[in-house]
Design a protein around this nucleic acid. Structure first.
Lengths: 196, 196
DNA sequence: TTCATCATATGATTGAAATCATATGGAAGC
DNA sequence: GCTTCCATATGATTTCAATCATATGATGAA
């Protein structure tokens, strides 16, 4: 149930935890003892400016891990608050570090996981750099982001769902995408001529 | 000169490489033998759709590493092309994996580096989710992104430099930022009253 | 079957950032 | 000193996505 390689951790390293909406998971100043896997819900990580403004560092949703950096740090770098009721699994920092030391395969797998996340994040960032809505949607579909609903993808790529629907429609008209059924599209395999 | 922990690798693991503008560093199909540190220049990582459209996966600039995921993969996931003349250091995949196995401190440090990158990327992504230009600029300054030129930061956060200058100006007028000198700003430490 | 609900889809209008234009400040070179 | 060049800064206009509105298709519950 946990993502690789956390699924190989001993039970004693894991501690289920449930939060009600609004509950605080940890504070910036807390010594970090856990890395978290969020099964369901929504956790927001926040920092605060000198003036007290909260700045969202990250929104974690079901299926994601967070606070990885705390593994190697003496304090959390932000506050974590449950925006919705959330089910988590707390994974012991000490146990993870111990496992890394004792089992180089685990260390490899952890690095592999991190490297994969870096790659994914870079792709997402590059996607967000595409200003034009149609091109962004095309790149997103090409990247395999349209697996669930269009609304979900729209949120992922930073567009409104209306703009995304319009882009999907236009790209289909242009022949760059193929609509297989309502709400399902894939990239066309044939080159679109630019001269008409 | 190399970032931690790559600076501890033996010389035999490193190989300087220079590319002219337009030269290909590797292709998607190539078996990955190296992870790269880009000293100067600009390398673009691209994938291609079935229709042949190139999709930019990542733009790497001086001081950055890339192709980390290739450490744990049987092929590169994209093509790498030099957009400008570039100086690189190729770091042997085999040597890095070997060092990880033999030296758990190196493995720790590598994971720490990766974890830090993940954190940074998530912050950047969250920043890009802020629609309003002023708020995005405020968050960026609060995040310490205004170290070099405003133009550099503007590119980082996905705004034009004009929009960024306007936002800086407005935030200063509002008292949320303090302008120390031309092109230098920091967050105000005093709470701005909303009632006037 | 009917109704409710939500995702999909598209039209009309608005608004904010992009674009285009212009001016100033400051550093580097002559 | 003067000149060149570029970052900073702001004004005017345009463009495109956000917003607001409405309609349809699909799914599930009553």
């Amino acid at each position: 149930m946990l993502p690789i390689p956390f699924n190989t951790l001993p039970q004693l390293a894991l501690k289920p935890k449930n939060l009600r909406k609004g509950e605080v998971l940890f504070r910036q100043s807390d010594p970090p003892s856990f890395l978290y896997f969020l099964r369901t819900g929504h956790i927001q990580l926040l920092r605060h400016t000198e003036a007290g403004d909260g700045i969202v560092i990250h929104n974690a949703y079901g299926g994601q891990t967070f606070a990885e950096a705390s593994l190697f740090s003496g304090n959390y770098h932000c506050d974590a608050v449950a925006c919705e009721a959330s089910e988590l699994i707390a994974m012991s920092k000490i146990q993870i570090l111990k496992t890394m030391r004792q089992n180089s395969l685990f260390a490899f797998a952890l690095s592999a996981r991190f490297a994969g996340e870096i790659q994914t994040h870079r792709r997402r960032l590059e996607l967000r750099s595409i200003k034009n809505a149609s091109q962004r949607v095309y790149a997103a579909v090409a990247d395999g982001l349209l697996t669930g609903s269009v609304i979900t993808m729209a949120a992922e790529i930073g567009l409104t769902h209306e703009a995304t629907y319009r882009a999907l429609s236009q790209l289909t008209k242009e022949g760059r995408l193929v609509k297989t059924r309502r709400g399902r599209y894939h990239v066309s395999s044939t080159k679109v001529s630019t001269t008409g």
